[in-house]
Design a protein around this nucleic acid. Structure first.
Lengths: 145, 145
DNA sequence: ATAATAAAAGACAAATTTATCTTTTATTAT
DNA sequence: ATAATAAAAGATAAATTTGTCTTTTATTAT
């Protein structure tokens, strides 16, 4: 198992890709995004539609249309994307899937996972989308392979 | 998304349950385990067969048969179970699923996830199976609900 | 030896995730 | 107005995960 679902992996990569092309004030089409992050085009389209409907990314139809991310959305933490796709199970759920796991009714892993959950939570809430633009532009970071 | 797959959640809970009944030098049948951890019986059977085949837990057929965990296996770290079921993606894989993600070809989340991966790795390798027996026996920990 | 017991193995099915293709709608440029 | 473009929406399907049931094999007690 990976940390995120495939859907979420594609979603995050696509959002970072859109943000980074947006630095040039440029909208970008699904084909270019899919190629840029090495993901199945039609599947990614579905994911971006979903994020778009939820207002996390922005889009226009028609010629000169495409996806982009406005100022407000650029400031979003990564957790917004993760939550929209995978939910909050990663940083809120019980490691053993117990509905009623808590401080007073802990599962065996409760204490040891607490710190990790917090850590993941903090990270996803601290990082925001435009944070990587600089490094992405200069080719220091990879979104494919 | 949860941290572990359902299969892995059931697997871990079952192993802890078997270990804890084993304290009384007692083998335990699939029905009792499934009831004890609130999991689908036949599905769990498959999981335990797999762990048994891999030598991570022990079993005997026939009357007086059942599952148990021998001395050596009780000393195993939790990571052995997780790896046997979910693989090592959780503490080794790239957060964005990139095959070639590394220090020299990092994905955008590489640096920030490094610490978390290490943390999860350490935790799963530090905890061993019989570690919870005391608290499980005294009812301080929950394996169901 | 035989019947009873319990795990192992096999076969199948539902549910979910991942992926593909087609049609529709909104927008732009001519 | 019309044609071209690109996302949105709809429909379908493959693959994987999760779950269920039946048959076989090993072991024990009678």
């Amino acid at each position: 198992m990976a940390i995120f679902s495939k859907t979420c992996e594609y979603g995050i990569k696509a959002v970072l890709f859109i943000a980074h092309t947006g630095v040039q004030g440029r909208k970008v089409g699904i084909k270019e995004i899919a190629a840029g992050i090495d993901s199945p085009e039609f599947f990614l389209a579905k994911i971006l539609q979903d994020l778009s409907r939820k207002g996390i990314i922005n889009s226009f139809k028609g010629p000169t249309g495409g996806f982009f991310i406005d100022e407000a959305n650029l400031k979003r933490p990564l957790s917004d994307i993760v939550e929209a796709i995978d939910g909050d199970g990663l940083f809120r759920g019980c490691a053993l899937g117990l509905k009623q796991c808590s401080e007073i009714n802990p599962c065996p892993l409760h204490e040891e996972f607490k710190a990790i959950r917090t850590r993941i939570y903090d990270m996803l809430h601290t990082i925001n989308i435009d944070q990587f633009n600089q490094e992405l532009m200069s080719g220091l970071l990879s979104l494919k392979k």
